[in-house]
Each structure stands twice: as C-alpha cells, then as structure tokens.
Design a protein around this nucleic acid. Structure first.
Lengths: 396, 396
DNA sequence: CTTCTTTCTCCACATGCAGGACAAAGTTTG
DNA sequence: CAAACTTTGTCCTGCATGTGGAGAAAGAAG
C-alpha cells in the first residue's frame, strides 16, 4: 500500500518538477532556457531526477534548427488524490502528475455526520477510483474541509458547520490510511488554488476567490500564495454585517452576509416566496419536492421567474456591498466567483459588478475583472491536488 | 553632495547588516550564533563589510566565559532621512543606521500646495537638520505621501487629496536633489513599517495598521512585508460604505467611513455641535479659533465634555464596524490604531474594541489585541527610514 | 599557576559549478 | 550529395567557495 515517492533533493530539482507539472512534457533544451542554470548543472540535476524515477524520458523533441533534444516528463504513473469535502457533498478526483483529472466522483453527504463517517466515504470513493484502474496507489493527497484549518498541523479548528471535527487529526489519519503525504486546507483556499493553477486566475498574483455554497467564504491569494491568516480563519466573510438590524444568524449576531445571501438563505427565501404565493414557478416546484434548494432558484431564474430573479439580484447586491469593501481594502487584480450556486450565473454577476463598480474607487476597480470560476465543481479537487503536489515537489 | 554608500555584495552581508540595524552593536561571536554560517565564512564576510566601511569595529564585548569577542557596529556616520508628508503637515527626521531618531522637525503645510512647494519645504527642513550638525549627507531617504503610490517607480497615482501630484516623479526628483537612493510609499504603509520596526508590532507577522488623520487608511502587513495591492491602492478603507444612505462624501458616493468619521468629519461635527449650542466646551473653544479641529474634540473629551465623548464613541463604533469586517476577512494577529487623532485615545479604542469583539467571530478575535500605536507622530518618519534602509541593506 | 573555555585565524581539503572543447545529430545551402 | 552551419549533449579542467580541524590568543575558574 505504502508508496515511497521520491522527493527532490534541492530547490533546482523542485523548480524543474514544477515546470514539468505546469508546462507538461518538455525538452531538456527548453528547460535550460527557462531555469538559468549552466548546461552541465542542468544535465546533472535532470539525470538525478531520472534516477529517482520522478521523471522519465519521453522521446525526442522536434528540431529547433539543429540536433533534436530529448524530451522528459513527470513519471506517468504518479497519482495525486484531490478531496473536496463540502457541507453537503464530497468530491474526489484522481490526477496525474500534471494535475489533469483522470477520474472524478461526487457523492452527496452531510458533513455533520462527523469525521469517521465522512472518512469512510472518502476512502471508499478513493478505493473505487483505484479499482477502476486509474491508480495503483497515491503519491499524495490534498483534502479540503468547509471550515478553518490549522494549516501546519492539518487539523480543523472550531468549525461552526462541522460539529465533531474540531481537533480531529485529518492529516495524520488520512496519511495513515492512504500511506502517502497529505495536506489539509480550507475548501475555499483550495478552490482559489484550483483557479490559479488551471482556471481563470492563471498568471494573476493577487486575487480573491469568493465561494458561494451553503455558506460564503473567500480565498485570498497574495503574490501567488494562499494567505491563511493568523489562526487560519482568513477569508471568513460570511459573517460580515451587511444590515445593522438584519436577520438573525446562526452565529448569534444579526445581519450577517450569510444570513441574507448564501445557498441556505436563498433556499429559505424561495420557500417563503412559494408559500406566500408570490411565485407560481417556485410553488409548483415545492409541490414535487420537500425542500427547495439554491438550484431550484437557479432553474426558476433561467425560466424567467421574476421572483427568483429578484432574489438573485438582491443577493448579488448584498454580496457586491461586501466585495466592494474588500476590493477597496485589498486592491486585488481579479475577483473570481464560484461555488455551488454558479448556476445563478450572469444575473448574479451583473448585480455584483454593478455594486462593486459603483461603490469602490476607480483606481481599485479601473482594470478589475470580476468573473465566474472556470472549473466548476472540480475546482476544489484540482486545488487539493495542486496543494499536495506543491508539497511533494519541494525538498524534503 | 553625492555620497557613494557601499552596498552589500550578497545576501549574507545584507542579513548581517539588518541584524546590526535591528539589534545594535553586536559581537562577532553572537552574530555567529544568529546566522548559521561557518566561522570562517562569517569572518570573511565581516572583513569585507569592514573594508566597505559600512561596518566598523566597536571595542571588545564582555566575556562569555572565555576569550572576549570583538564588537562590530554599523558605521556611526551613516544617516537616513525619513520624510512623512501628511495632508496638513510635514515630518522630517534624521536617523542613524540603527534607525534611532537623532533629530525631528515638524512643519504645518497643506499638501495641496503642490509638489514643487512641498519639495522646497522638505529640502529646507533636511538642510536645516544637516546644518545643525546631525548629518553631513544622507545615505538614503524614505518618503511617504498621503495617497496611493506606484511603488516600483516611486510615483503617486491619482491621489484624490493631492491635486497636482499625479505622476510627479517623487523618487527621481528627490534622489537627484539629495544625491542618494530614495524610496516612496504611502504614508500609512510607512506608519505600519514604523510600528513593525520599533513599535507595538515588533515580532508580529500579519497585522493591520489603521491611521486616522484627515482621512482614514490602513496599512496591511503580510508575513512581515507590506502588501500594496495590484495598483498600490490597498488599504484604502476610507471609502468603504458604513451607512447605505449616509452622508455625501467627496468621492461622490454616500455613507463612506471617511464622511462619518475622520479628522475632517470630527471637526465638522464638533463645529456643528458648538453652533447648535449642544456643547458649552466646544462653543467656548470656537470663540477663540476660527475652525475647530480633531485636537479640539480630543481636548474637550479629556475635559469630560459629554458631546465630544459621544462624537468619539459614535465614530469608534463606525470604525469598529469596518475593522470588524476586515478582521473577519484578514484574520490579523494585531490591529494598531494610530494617526493624528491618537489623542482621542482610550475612549476611541474602547468603542472600537466593543464593536469588533461583538461583531467578529471568536476564532478571529480570540487572541486579537487592538492597541494604539506606540510611536506617535514619528511612526511615519521611522517607517520611511526603515523602508530605505531595507533597500540600502540589500544586494545591489 | 594550571586547566578549561571561548574566540579567532589559518590552512588543507572537498565540493560544486561554470565554461570551453568536442562529439553527435539535424538543417540549410550550393 | 557534400559542405557548412546550428543545436544539443557530454566530458573535463580550472576556479571559487565553503567546511572543518588545528592551533594560537585571550580570558575565566579553581
């Protein structure tokens, strides 16, 4: 079960591994252009990487006007596991060393069932992916949980929506079970990493990634690195006050953003509208299902239901207020909006944009794109794979 | 005029220079404990630094149980100039290489008089300090301006309260005049650097530094480094909305924090209270001066005037609302409050604290000190010296 | 006064790396 | 098709740098 994946011996090797991860197969000559090492040094390091098995030869590159160069690539047998535990579902993906998703499973599950039950499920899903021939074992696993994490130890801390998880040694436990290195992070941070690696945020140094799911969170990226804050709770914007005497929130305060707009709040608003007969569309839907969800609102909006559209617009305005403040404060180069309710799509986006561009100063918004995430439900799992690959591809 | 200050040749030397700057005179042996270099290597680098003249011998250290070690220190003739241009006044300080303030001048001046007039004043003040024998020349100068700056070029960009400064080549011009390296930054960022170097924020990696002056700004420090944002406008929190249909602000919006609480807003509120006869204390003051200032409010509060106290409390609440949001988002390890109106002191602080601790989640506020700055009016100038010393003490 | 500790210098040795020479493999030109 | 030029990869030498030990210098402890 346990795989002894080699680790790079120095920063040069780590650099090369990451280049190969991000740019795919590459010729030795091309690598030479990228890394500013002498030919001899480069040859030595590449040879050592080939010896460790992390890297393998991959045929000849096309000629660039002279002798053809030898291609190398990351070992095609390397596998990373990306796990994204949401409030109501679990995503598990297998990737190769280039972080391309080879297989992806999604399973509904309430995180409140506790770490033991969730773990069982995650392991079962991982086993299923392995059984389907996608992987023989894993060289590393990243896992995201919907709450703050003490990052160095990989342990959730005081997660409001995850009773029973406080202090559970997620990293240690999963590492034991899978027999490979594991890193744990907040799900929102992983979404940000995913979008940074393979999504809209490629080549942006400083950006925000707002995730609207059951709750609302925000990933913060500073200089290409996720910023986690002093206690790992940075980006917890769900409980910023948007209405001085607003709705009561589960956190005990009033007027929190999450209480006014989030997957949960949207569903509640929709149900109320349906019951009060304000929306025929939503009422009809409520006849067939027990409880409405954010997806129902999204469907109603797509069908042109005015009440649903208004709910989304009002929510976008609230969200926009908060984002406007964050933009003034943080002056990001990009704002990404993602998460389960991306289905709300452009209605939401338009509403957020209007609010931000109106409220923030021109210097901060001047060239500020506000866009939807590109990776959809896979963002978290890809980010998780990226997290662990950064770890595995760094000197031991 | 031009002084050719030597620069370190490599990162080891830079490291040593900064240690000497931050810890003062030090024995070679002690440095050896701090830097993890072999004795021989350390000796070589120190010798080279002695050759350049950046570092000089400084007698013998007390014995640590054996042969006494030779002390070294930064050259006592090194001088940095720290300039802090506020909206209504200019601070100029001369420091030695350890960034101890040797001389400090303050001069009222409206920044709106434009870069040329302000420059003249700054140069006159620098000349005065030099004439008083504190410095023969400067080895570097840092300068802070009350608006966003394109940091790499050292040029203000679209500063709302500094008409005429947009695009003015501050760095270039000052460097020409003084004949030494110059760095330019936002005044709030420099205050943060000052408090980090010599104030309350020593040894804190991630913190916020809120400056309340004519306007309101916030310095952001991430991992010991100032974060400036994509266009250099990070920390511009004065125009975050605190009241949906609040007061009109100079920026064109309504309900901005600055419109409700800042040096300017406070003065305006106080005048109104005085005119309406709500405060005998403030009214009396208004008889002797033409316009009230934040200092007058501060004095009235110190004398127990209930209206002044209430103004401060209300302002603190507004400020607290915004800071609470930022704390949730950024999860800092410390919040420093400073700026001209620090005289408002503990009344303001109490009000802010109440609001933040009430509104933010326990995980973020659990161990979060909210304190007043320690350096008072010198913070900006010290931060400016620190900025340029970081530059001078880095490899060329 | 002797012994031990600490500091500092000097030196021999190892290591690591750059850069040139050269061979191998292709392309282009006449 | 041959000659000339380009690019790539390997080998090797020389230089630079840094490590760690030996030993001298300076002081503390007994």
């Amino acid at each position: 079960m346990r795989r002894m994946t080699a680790r790079p011996e120095n920063t040069h090797q780590a650099r090369l591994l990451r280049l190969l991860r991000d740019n795919g197969s590459n010729s030795r000559a091309q690598l030479g252009d990228l890394v500013d090492l002498s030919r001899s040094k480069l040859a030595v390091e590449v040879d050592r990487l080939l010896e460790t098995g992390l890297v393998v030869a991959d045929g000849l590159a096309p000629s660039r006007g002279g002798r053809r160069s030898h291609n190398i690539r990351l070992a095609p047998t390397l596998r990373f596991l990306g796990v994204d535990i949401g409030a109501t579902s679990i995503d598990v993906a297998v990737t190769n060393a280039e972080l391309e998703v080879l297989g992806h499973l999604n399973q509904p599950m309430d995180v409140r069932e506790g770490p033991v039950a969730v773990f069982e499920q995650v392991l079962a899903m991982a086993a299923k992916l392995r059984a389907s021939g996608l992987a023989e074992g894993f060289d590393g696993a990243g896992i995201g949980v919907p709450g703050p994490v003490r990052f160095p130890e990989g342990v959730p801390v005081a997660p409001p929506i995850m009773p029973g998880w406080d202090g559970f040694p997620v990293r240690e436990a999963l590492s034991q079970e899978l027999g490979c290195p594991v890193m744990v992070d907040n799900d929102v941070n992983l979404m940000a990493m995913g979008e940074m690696h393979a999504g809209v945020a490629r080549s942006v140094g400083d950006f925000l990634c707002v995730k609207i799911g059951t709750g609302i969170g925000c990933g913060i990226v500073v200089g290409g690195e996720v910023y986690r804050g002093t206690t790992g709770s940075a980006g917890d914007i769900g409980h910023i006050q948007v209405e001085p005497e607003g709705r009561a929130c589960v956190c005990g305060n009033r007027g929190c953003l999450e209480a006014h707009f989030s997957g949960a709040a949207l569903a509640a608003d929709a149900e109320q509208a349906a019951r009060e007969g304000r929306s025929a569309h939503l009422a009809a839907r409520l006849e067939t299902v027990e409880r409405l969800t954010a997806e129902d609102v999204s469907a109603a909006a797509a069908a042109g239901d005015p009440v649903a559209l208004e709910l989304i617009r009002a929510g976008g305005k609230r969200l926009g207020q908060v984002i406007a403040g964050l933009v003034s404060f943080f002056n990001p180069g990009l704002v990404v909006i993602g998460g389960g309710v991306t289905g709300l799509g452009h209605t939401l986006l338009a509403s957020v944009r209007t609010q931000v561009y109106r409220q923030s100063l021109p210097l901060a918004t001047g060239n500020l794109p506000i866009v939807l995430g590109e990776l959809g439900p896979a963002a978290g799992a890809i980010g998780a794979a990226r997290l662990i690959s950064d770890h595995v591809f760094s000197p031991a």
